[in-house]
Nucleic acid binder design. Sequence first.
DNA 1: ACATTGACCTGGGAGC
DNA 2: TGCTCCCAGGTCAATG
Length: 272
Amino acid sequence: MPELPEVETTRRGIQPYVEGRTIIKMVIRHRGFRWPIPDQLEDIIQGQKIKTIERRAKYLLFRCETGTLIIHLGMSGRLRVLDNDSHIGKHDHVDIYIDNGHVVRLTDPRRFGAVLWTEADTGAHQLLAHLGPEPLSDFFNADYLRLQSKGRSSTIKSVIMNGEIVVGVGNIYANEALFLAGIHPAKAAGKVSKVKMAKLVEAIKLVLEKALLAGGTTLKDFRKSDGKPGYFAQQLHVYGREQQPCLICQTPISCIRQAQRATYFCKQCQPK
DNA sequence: ACATTGACCTGGGAGC
DNA sequence: TGCTCCCAGGTCAATG
C-alpha cells in the first residue's frame, strides 16, 4: 500500500500522540509477518518511553530508551491512533497502548510488513544498512542518478524503484514521475540522456512533495492515522488510467507489465 | 556484479 | 450464489 508519502503521512499523524509518551503495554495477536515478530517484544517494550518517531525509506522508527521499534507497512499495513477501548477487528494484529488513553494499532490483512526490534544503531541494521538516499534530500540529484544508472541495462523504472539507489519510490510514483519527465518506463537506464535524467529527479521530488501535501494516495485501503483518506489519487496522470485520454495529448494511456507490476504511460508523451 | 523471477498473504472484483 | 482466476501501494531470496 504505502510509498513514501503515505508512510510519512502516517508518521506525522501519529507523532503528536506518541512522542515523549510511555508505552503501557504491547499486545500482539498474530506474530506471522514477513519475519516473525520477536519473542518477548511485549516484555522488552513495556514501560519504555518513545523519545521520537522517525522515518527512513518506508520504515517507521520508534526510538525508545533501550532500542528502536522498526515497523514496515508492507502492501496493506496501516497504523492508526485510536481510543484504547476501540473494537478490535480481524486484521488488527498489534496494539501499542500509550499512557494517554490512546492505542497505536497496526492493521495488516496481508502481513507483508514487519515489526522488529533492534538495540543497535539502525543505520547498521541489516534491512537499513544498504538503503540509498532519501529522494527529497540533496544527496539525490541528477549527477548521482546518472552515476548510478551508468552502464545499466535494466529499465529506468526498475532503477528508480530500487531501494539501494533511491528509497521511497514505489509503483504509483515511479509511473507518475516518468510521465512528468517524458521518459518511457522501459528505456534502459544507462541510455537516458543527461537532460531527461535531471527532469526525472525533479519529477520524483515534485510528485512526492505534492502527494505529501495531499496526505498521500488512497486507492483502496490507505487511510491516514486519523482514518481519513489521502487525496492525491485525484492528481494522478497515468496510474490506473489505462485507455483513458492522456491529460496532455489525449492519446489513450497504455498499460504494460514490467517485473509483474502494472506500468502505465503515454506512448506519445513518453517516446522510447 | 547485475538482472529477472518467485515467494510471502488476504481480499476484492471480473467472468462463468 | 458460488467457484476460479487475476490483481493489488513491497522487497527479500533464489536463480540465471
